[in-house]
Structure formats: structure tokens, C-alpha cells
Design a protein around this nucleic acid. Structure first.
Lengths: 241, 241
DNA sequence: CGACAATATCGAGTGCTATTCAATTAGCCT
DNA sequence: AGGCTAATTGAATAGCACTCGATATTGTCG
């Protein structure tokens, strides 16, 4: 694969370009036909190269698929970090909500890839690599959670990996439910409640108990009603301006 | 497959017995070698029949695998129901804990089968059947949850499928974490905290508080602040009574 | 520029398996 | 027994990932 002699820069660039071409072709074919349904011949044809050439870039079909998945998850990681960066709110739960919303939407939109990722879980040897990329992806959550603990917004005795499993496990299952129950218009309709639920759950279970955050909803509602009535009364007493 | 003429009872029994023999052999081979690694020849040999005969009982390798999985999940369903029946406590959360403990342990012990189940998610056509059996399995949780709502132990406005996804999604991810982080002694050591966490979470988030309706606290607080400001303004405009 | 070396590409072959099917056997009824 | 149907078999088929010797391309040095 890699030559002993150092190839010129243009040469290396050419190889990398071809690598990308193969990867793109593979990506398209895998998404269209799944792992087993994809034929190496078709991938090669789509990439515009011979079948054997593919094997001088990737050892096997499984490894090719793995490369596709790595590219995919790396992209997701960048996007997730971007989402976190773009949320100006410093409130932990607002950021958690943004992450949950992004993740849920991503999992639904890219269901093909998610399924492919888990389909590869058959071959033991290559799973580990894929798992590294998952780890990298979920690190976004980890950072958020740890910072929340540092700031005292979250219970200090909460266990990170358990919270992480709850977060991503629930969202993945929810995504599947949403997919199957509502085929069409899965873009925004029924997702919001799921995310709200998740955030509320984290607030209720992981939120620091001693926190100044409002807890008594009924009290709030009562106060709200009283205020509304007050305003009503006041408004009527006002002279026309 | 099924004959038009009604075979004698012994004949039917014989066929069913052979079906079971094939299923058992397939189960063993699939667990040992995974889906791709399993060879139909070996399954046939283990069942003590010719290779072609398998195909007069099951259309294809995938369908054979599916039958194995169905048998597996049906067994789990029975076991889960047994667990529920054996818990004498009527307390909802005690029963929930028993179910969680059973499920987590099962998922860890039978990780092979769980992975095989999801590995089949490649072939679209056959997924549905598998999904029915999953539905049947999770119905145990559904009944528990609905009864909890009926009795007022759980919030009435909780959405069943969301709670279900949180329950099983979290447990599956936790199981995977437990598997990978602690190879040995995954029997009892680190499982308990996960289950406790899950039950505590359900208690905190889904347990009926005294109030009938839960509202979005942040939204309420915002409205409250706005109203207060409004009142302030209005008050200043008012003539002294 | 031309020849040689190194490297990249190709696609027809190889090997491995799921699946089929024509031939054979076993079961059952009169 | 003999004939009929259904079950069984395993050798043949077919499809696909992967290999490998032949060929083309690129790079280098005189």
C-alpha cells in the first residue's frame, strides 16, 4: 500500500484522491444495498476503477465498510461539537437539549448508517476500531456532563457512563420507535416531546438537589394564575393613554 | 412444506420433532460461529440429516436464523413473565427492579443472541417478524407500567413508549458497557448499581408527585417573570387609590 | 530522450457456500 | 405386493469476495 520510496506530493495527492473516490462510491453502494447486498464489482465500477484495485487500497470488504463508517462518525463528531459551540447558552440543560435534539435527528436521518454500524458487530476483530470512533463521538456528551458536575449543576455522585448509556440508549431506541411508527414526516413532528422528556428526566434525576432551580411546579402555576388575575384587574383600572 | 393431505398425528409429531432437531442444531452452530461463520452443511450434519432437507423446513439460512431467534425471544418472554409472577411485592418499583435486573442479566448472558438479533437487521423483509417478537417481549414492561398508571403510582401523563424506550434502551447500552469494561465476573458485581440507578430514575421522573399535571418549569418561570415586569409597569402608571 | 525499475491497475481465475433439483428412498393405503 | 405421494439426499449450480500473473503507468537516471 504505502511505498518505501517517498512519492512526490502530487503523487500522494493523487492516491488520496483515488482513496476518496473509492470511499464515496462504497458509501453510496453500501447505503443503497446494505453490507451483504453491496457487490465489490459495483463499487469498483462506480469508482471507475478495476475490481482488484480496490483491494490495494482496502484489505477487504469489511475494512472498506469500516473506513466508510469511520468517515461517517468522524463527521458526526465534528457536527456535534459544532452544535455545542453554537449554543450560546451556558445553561447545562439547554446545551443538553441541543445535543439530544441533534443526536436524535441525526440517528433518524442516517438510520442506514447506524444500522450498518451495528451490522458490522458480527466480525469481532474489526469492531474495536468502530468502537473507538463511537467513543470519540460520545465524548461530546462526556465533556458536557463532567462540566455540569464541576459547576454543581449535576449531582456529584452521578456515574458518568451510566448517564451516558441512559442518554444515548434511550435516544437510539426512541429514534427506532419514531422511525417505525411514523414513516413519513419524521423530521420534526414527534421528536420534540422525546427530547423534552429526556431533558426533564436528566433534570429530575441528575440535577443537583440543592440547586436554586424551580422544583414546585404547582406553586409556580398558582403564582402565575394570581399574577394574571392581578394584571387583569390592574388593566381595567388604567385610564386610556 | 405442509402437506395437503392431513398426516397422522404421529407423522405430524415426527415432523415437528425433526423441526426441533434442526432448530437446536442451528442454534448451537449460530451461537458458536455467528451468522456468516455458520455453514449450512455443518448445521445439517449436526442435525443428522442431509443438507437439502434443511431447505424443506426453512426457506433459507436467514429464515432458519429467524426461527432460532423467535424461539429465543419467546423463551425470554416466558421467563420475564415468570419473574413478574414470582415477585410477591405489589409495589410497582420493586417489580420494575426485578424486571430490570432480569433483563440486564439476560442481555449480558445471552449477548450472542442479542447481537445476532440486530445483525439480522440487514435483511429488510424479515426484520418485521423479529420485531413482533420483540414487541411481545417488551409487553411485560408495558403491562407493568400501565398498571402503575392506573393505580396512580406513576404520572398519568407519562407516555408509555417513551418510558419503554428509556427502560430498554438504557439497559441495553449499560449491558454493552458492562460487557466491554469488565470482561470477567460480569455476573453480579457491577450490575446492581445500574439497576438501582434505573429504578431511582423512574421513581424521580415518572413517580406520581402530588400534583396532577406537570408543566414545563422553565417556560413557567419565563412567563412568570414577564408577568411580574408587566405588573410592575402597570402599577407605576396607576393613580394612588 | 530512452531504457530500466518500481509501482499501480486490471480482470479473468480460484475457492468457498448458500441454494436447487433430479434421482432415490420411505411411508401409507388398498 | 404394488403403486402413489411426500420426504430426503447430495452432487451440481450460481454468486460473490478475493487472488494473482499480466499489463500499463509513473519515476529516475544516464
Amino acid at each position: 500500500m504505502a511505498s518505501n520510496a517517498i512519492p512526490s506530493e502530487t503523487q500522494r495527492a493523487k492516491l488520496e484522491r483515488k482513496e476518496r473516490v473509492i470511499l464515496d462510491a462504497a458509501r453510496a453502494i453500501f447505503v443503497d444495498h446494505g453490507f451483504d447486498g453491496a457487490r465489490m464489482q459495483e463499487i469498483a465500477r462506480r469508482a471507475g476503477i478495476g475490481e482488484g484495485t480496490v483491494y490495494s487500497y482496502y484489505e477487504s470488504k469489511a475494512e472498506l465498510m469500516l473506513a466508510v463508517l469511520q468517515q461517517f462518525w468522524d463527521g458526526l463528531t465534528l457536527e456535534a461539537e459544532g452544535v455545542m459551540a453554537s449554543v450560546e447558552a451556558t445553561d447545562l440543560f439547554a446545551r443538553l437539549e441541543a445535543l439530544a435534539r441533534y443526536h436524535l435527528n441525526t440517528v433518524i436521518v442516517n438510520a442506514d448508517f447506524i444500522n450498518l454500524t451495528f451490522a458490522l458487530r458480527r466480525n469481532n476483530s474489526e469492531v474495536s476500531v468502530s468502537r473507538d470512533h463511537l467513543r470519540h463521538y460520545v465524548a461530546v456528551f462526556d465533556r458536557l456532563f463532567l462540566r455540569g458536575q464541576d459547576r454543581g449543576e449535576l449531582r456529584a455522585d452521578a456515574v458518568l457512563w451510566q448517564a451516558r448509556d441512559i442518554f444515548y440508549g434511550s435516544l437510539e431506541y426512541s429514534a427506532r420507535s419514531i422511525e417505525t411508527t411514523m414513516e413519513a414526516d419524521r423530521s420534526t413532528r414527534e421528536q420534540l416531546p422525546v427530547v423534552d422528556e429526556m431533558v426533564a428526566l436528566f433534570r429530575a434525576h441528575y440535577g443537583a438537589t440543592g440547586n436554586p432551580v424551580i422544583v414546585d411546579e404547582v406553586g409556580l402555576a398558582t403564582r402565575l394564575d394570581k399574577l394574571a388575575a392581578q394584571i387583569d384587574t390592574l388593566s381595567r383600572c388604567l385610564p386610556r393613554p
